[in-house]
C-alpha cells in the first residue's frame, strides 16, 4: 500500500526533523526545521482525514509562527548592529 509507505516516511521524517530542530547550533536553522516539521504535520493531518485542521495548520502553524520567529530574530539582529 502506497499510503502506508508514505505514513512511515512521514513519521520517520517528523522525528528526525524534531531532533534536528532541537539540536542544531544556529537558531535560524532551528526555525527552518520547525517550519518544515509543521509542514510535514500538515501531510499527516491529510493522511488522517482532517482537511480543515490541515489548512489551519498550514496557514497558522507553518506560516504565521515561522514569520513570528524570523521577525524576532531579525529585530534582535538590528539591536545587535546598533551596539
Amino acid at each position: 500500500m502506497l499510503i502506508d509507505i508514505i505514513e512511515i516516511v512521514v513519521s520517520v521524517l517528523l522525528i528526525v526533523l524534531a531532533f534536528l530542530a532541537i539540536n542544531s547550533k544556529m537558531l535560524i536553522k532551528s526555525v527552518i526545521f520547525l517550519s518544515s516539521l509543521s509542514m510535514l504535520s500538515v501531510i499527516s493531518f491529510i493522511i488522517m482525514q482532517a482537511p480543515d485542521v490541515a489548512v489551519t495548520e498550514a496557514v497558522i502553524g507553518s506560516g504565521l509562527v515561522t514569520s513570528l520567529f524570523v521577525f524576532t530574530l531579525l529585530a534582535v539582529r538590528k539591536v545587535e548592529e546598533k551596539i
Partner: peptide, 24 residues
C-alpha cells in the same frame, strides 16, 4: 530562550497529531 519556545512548539505539534490520530 528561542530553543525552548521551539521545543514548546514541537510538543504542541506532537500533541495535535496525537489527538487527530485518536479520532482516526
Amino acid at each position: 530562550i528561542i530553543k525552548i519556545i521551539i521545543s514548546l512548539n514541537i510538543l504542541e505539534i506532537g500533541l495535535n497529531i496525537f489527538i487527530i490520530s485518536i479520532g482516526f
